[in-house]
Simulated scan of single mutants.
Amino acid sequence: MIATVDGAAWGPDGRSASINDPADWRVFRVLRALADVVLVGAGTARQEGYTGLSRPRGLERLATAPLELAIVTRSGQVPWATLDGPRPPLVVTGRAGAQEAGAAVGEDRVLECPDGTEDGVDLRAAREALTARGLARVLCEGGPGLLADMLAADLVDELCVTTSPMLAGPGPGRIVAAPRDREPGAGRELRLGHLLSGPSGTLLARWEVG
């Protein structure tokens, strides 16, 4: 995740790309190169213009298997741009969204993980389903709502946060949004694993979540 000094999770265009820089991009590429699957909310995938994923160019040697993309969507609606790639994304959804998701990506690419409600998604069950497919290293790229739900479900081991040397002013949200019905872990203590400084003053931190 990336945020400005005053806590904004995106810039004036509504996208995180407008507040990042080459140092953040370099770390972003390495994290993707080391992951088995990128997990992202459908809303963020649409807003940020996600397409089908592949290993970052020049870093393919860091992993042998293809990089998978997994979209979390309660409705089962899949951003069309994510279908433009070497294979369709995996879709994590609940009961209400499974049929529509299957029509878009094929039933074999749908992880139906209901949480006991009509349209809710059990993220812990989703994590287990990804692991069962050999996708143990999950890189969650947000957005803020999904990150909040992941924290509330105690599914975050590390939190990588870039602080961009910018001020955004009022308007943009934070990197963690309020979940619908759970406490996102307010007051939880983190341990600093790494802190790097980029040439422009960008700070890149890896926090260990206890």
Rank of each mutant, 00 (worst) to 15 (best):
A70R: 11
R74W: 07
R74S: 07
G76Q: 12
G76T: 04
G76W: 08
Q77I: 06
V78A: 09
W80H: 15
W80C: 04
A81I: 00
G85H: 00
P86H: 11
R87S: 14
P88A: 11
V91A: 09
V92A: 15
G97S: 11
A98T: 12
A98Q: 09
Q99E: 15
A101W: 01
A101L: 10
G102Y: 00
G102K: 09
A103Q: 15
V105F: 05
G106W: 11
E107M: 02
E107V: 12
R109I: 03
V110D: 02
V110I: 13
L111H: 08
C113I: 03
P114G: 12
D115P: 03
D115C: 01
G116D: 08
G120K: 11
V121E: 03
D122T: 01
L123C: 10
R124T: 14
A125Q: 13
R133K: 13
R137E: 13
L139A: 12
C140E: 02
E141R: 02
E141M: 04
E141Y: 07
G142K: 06
L146Q: 09
L147G: 00
L147Y: 13
A148E: 05
A148S: 14
A148P: 02
A152C: 10
L155F: 04
V156D: 10
E158R: 12
L159Y: 05
L159C: 08
C160N: 10
C160D: 08
V161S: 03
T162H: 15
P165N: 11
M166A: 15
A168Q: 08
G169K: 05
G169D: 09
G169P: 08
P172I: 09
G173I: 00
I175S: 00
I175C: 00
V176K: 10
V176S: 06
A178R: 15
A178W: 01
R180M: 03
R182F: 01
E183L: 12
E183P: 00
G185D: 11
G185R: 03
A186W: 13
G187M: 11
L190P: 08
R191N: 07
